[in-house]
Design a binder for these strands. Structure first.
Lengths: 160, 160
DNA sequence: AATTTTTGCCGCATTAAATTCGGTAAATTC
DNA sequence: GAATTTACCGAATTTAATGCGGCAAAAATT
């Protein structure tokens, strides 16, 4: 019931997790029907899943284009040094940039991959020139502009 | 109030969107306090944001490790042909694979970038060999394994 | 294998939240 | 500047969440 890898949950919990990933706004009453329990134990299970940290949070998903965000990209970033100090300095800077919505440390081509979202190409360029490439630990950058997003699932495939 | 790019919303709506992206489980009563309106018009605004498609859906975010998902990757996929037929055939196959949680058509290095999540390296390899590389339109694949995720924000930076 | 203990469930009562509605004021249109 | 629409509030109502006592099944103990 704390902070470590892999927590136990049964088939019913699994179903709850699948449902809440797909639709967090479902009422407890409806959820209880869907899983075949009464509301009380259903709610208890959800609370436990939250307390155990299996469920971390709940979020509204917006349509980027409708709020004026027309350009999404992935950026491979190579750092100058691969030591802990540099990496931490880089991450600290990235943390401040709200347009960077993801940042992963990776193997392979680059050192980091970022997901960036911005208004248009102009503001994207500005962001890259004035903020990302200004971070002194950054060596190389390679942008991949998203032409279209075919799949963007918020449902993780929970292993059997 | 339909399907096209960029819908109008004011400063209050903007704040609602920021709050609901960060915490979809907030009560309408609390949300109304946070934005400085009474519950009734607050609810009305949220409903409108949903109906207009600005808010697309609500999702629970899980901790991948706690449900036994230890390996996440990005995969750059090059296709054999770049014609519409091939691309659509590829997407159709990808759609069936639940471990592929994202699929974007991109400019630059590859043709597509996928985000994949699986149990461990063994099951990842199996997935790649038996499912992804079996898709006949797939030419090249380059995997980037995520060593750690530093930022994974569900909050889009809504332009002013 | 019987007893104890724990776990998980249900139904009901209570509390809290969402939703509806009528009325009013501000903003917009004509 | 009158008419119309839009957006707000407060209060009443409906609906949902939550808390609790009791019961039954499963698990642990002896």
């Amino acid at each position: 019931m704390d902070n470590y890898i892999k927590v136990k949950f049964d088939k019913i919990d699994r179903k709850i997790l699948e449902i809440l990933q797909a639709n967090a706004k479902i009422t407890n009453a409806q959820l209880s029907k869907d899983i075949g329990l009464s509301p009380a134990p259903t709610l208890e299970r959800v609370k436990k899943l939250e307390q155990s940290g299996i469920i971390k949070s709940y979020h509204a998903k917006l349509d980027p284009e409708k709020i004026g965000l027309g350009v999404s990209t992935f950026v491979l970033v190579g750092l100058i040094g691969h030591n802990k100090t540099n990496i931490e300095a880089f991450m600290k800077e990235i943390d401040h940039i709200s347009e960077v919505i993801e940042c992963h440390h990776i193997t392979g081509t680059g050192d980091f991959i970022l997901k960036i979202i911005s208004k248009d190409i102009t503001s994207y360029q500005k962001l890259m020139l004035e903020k990302v490439s200004e971070i002194k630990e950054v060596d190389s950058m390679q942008s991949m502009v998203i032409l279209s997003t075919f799949k963007d699932s918020k449902v993780l495939p929970i292993p059997a």
